[in-house]
Amino acid sequence: MTTQGRALWRTTPILGLTCAMAALGMLPFVPFASEPSEEAFTLEHWELDDSATRGAAVYAQYCIGCHGPTGLGNGDAAEFLDPKPRNFQSGNFKFRSTPSGELPLLADIEHVVRCGLEGSAMRRFPLLPDSQVRDVSRYVQSLVEFGLVRREVEYVMDDDDLTLAELLEGDYEELREETLVDAYEYVWRVGMDERPEVDEDGLAFGRELYEAQCAACHGATGRGEGASANALRDYKDAEIRPRDFTSGVFRAGSRAEDVFIRLKSGLNGTPMPAVSGTDEELWHLTHYILSLVVDDGGRGPHPTSCACIEEGPAR
């Protein structure tokens, strides 16, 4: 036994080999760093507040694969996705509660992160802690702001023939301040009057509105087969299809409130405008649209969907 005991420690090559295997196993935990670029105005020049800094880590864990390292919507997974992941730097957000053409509220981004976009590759994150949802949304908002300022910076550099260093030394802070103040000037939550009862008259009225304003794209049956449905393009010239109301799948929520907000605030960057009309009219239109949903009995809210979680687990 004693000779064996000593032999155990004498024959070191085998121990070395096992250690090498362990080292190989640890490889994935080695971090790597990237070099900041000197030429252009990039994210490295952008100051993040505390919340956004924490959010960047959450972003790297959950979002980066589709939305890309700088939020341009060009992550590695984007190749297979349709619709393409949002380009945050463009500032075009479809699902907001702000007036048409404006940036989203932080709460709007949080809602999309929490509940996902039904029927698209944007999955929901129901179990992410509130603080992380807020932080990552703040980071996304920072990417939006960065995109706005970057375009201004590029414009000024081009116009005044400045290098980046000169601009950063000079009027950059002022420029940044001004751009952001302008961007948020009209950002507020659109109002929502009390929801009327669903009744025959209201639906008939909604139907009139629908046929006048919506049927051209969404079609008379709501199947999204309107006359101009195939000719629609979004702000970046990509093909975009009108929503099929019969499916009951609404990207950012299928409650009446969700649909109402979509009508009132429009989908930025797409041919879907904010629908003009009083709140009451929009409610009637909402009710009519929801009446188009074909319920085949097999499709309730998903057992793990936001609606179920907010109301407690489905039984």
């Binding site: 694969g65 589709c66 992550g75 590695d76 997974a77 984007a78 190749e79 297979f80 996705l81 349709d82 698209s120 590759a121 999955r123």
Partner: peptide, 13 residues
């Protein structure tokens, strides 16, 4: 499309 992207490379999504 999420599933397609996921089968191609799970770590992307």
């Amino acid at each position: 499309d999420w599933h397609a992207a996921h089968f191609w490379e799970p770590r992307n999504v």
